[in-house]
Design a protein around this nucleic acid. Structure first.
Lengths: 144, 144
DNA sequence: TCATTTATCTACTAAATCAGTAGACTTTAA
DNA sequence: TTAAAGTCTACTGATTTAGTAGATAAATGA
């Protein structure tokens, strides 16, 4: 399961994608529109800024804005930033690999195959889910 | 990520699948062979027994054994039993559904689509990963 | 029947993670 | 120079994870 932090991050980013190139949006506004505790959101946005996903501006008229195009930010990247590994087993993770202590011999482990497949298919879907696609989907659903 | 409990359960079940129809295997043996803390394993096996995945026999010559064919037990079922939902979002879970509080209107949420796809593909792979297949895989890897 | 062997049950516990909150500090624009 | 923003450090309470300890119950076989 994704953490709340991660879900909040996704929602905030979708909101910022909606306002792409309209100048900085302040935390308060995002927090209200997306029903996210403001203080918590602060920490999340700061983290996304440090990861170069967001840019920020201080002082009056300041706020956060997407530092990349909505077509360049996808769920895979966001989840990795917020929650770490996407794979279901550490020994199968591409970005957060760690050996499973239980497995004495990883090469001979019959369990990994399935989880490698799950990982690859998951990355395929999440990697393809960019902010602009989510936004388009949202708009098409709103019409109905 | 799967919990250790879940990984232990999978390893224990693969071990029991190897001994299928050879009579009860006692906890101590599984714990040693699979490097699982015995007391922890006790609780896990008990849970699997209550879920009718395992059967048990008390007293001398007792132990645990698979109560179903190795072709009938798969990773999807084991993970659900041990860790709960497989989906990455509660609002997308088939067996452990819960609305996401952040989403005021689930029908109009543009995020869910991707996670539904991930869920379906994951279930497909995990549901097809039966104990006998894992065992076969393990044996073919051991030869190399 | 009694001792032994095994699973079963109840009840803790320590450590880590999650989901925040509080409050001081810094930068910027007007 | 003051108000409005983001930034930073440091807590906190609740929950989950990964166990452990110890008593109890049932089956077996001598």
């Amino acid at each position: 399961m994704l953490s709340k932090k991660c879900k909040y991050a996704i929602h905030a980013l979708v909101y910022l994608a909606e306002k792409y190139q309209e100048g900085p949006v302040h935390i308060q506004e995002i927090a209200e529109k997306k029903h996210i505790p403001k203080k918590f959101l602060e920490a999340i946005l700061l983290e996304l800024r440090k990861a170069k996903v967001l840019g920020s501006k201080k002082g009056k008229g300041g706020g956060y804005y997407l530092d990349q195009k909505p077509t360049a930010i996808n769920l895979m990247d966001i989840i990795r930033l917020m929650d770490g590994a996407i794979a279901m087993l550490p020994c199968v993770s591409l970005n957060y690999y760690e050996p499973c202590e239980e497995c004495r011999n990883e090469k001979a482990c019959g369990i990994r195959e399935a989880f490698i497949k799950v990982r690859d298919e998951t990355l395929q879907v999440l990697g393809g889910s960019t902010l602009d696609k989510i936004l388009k989907r949202e708009k098409s659903l709103a019409i109905k």
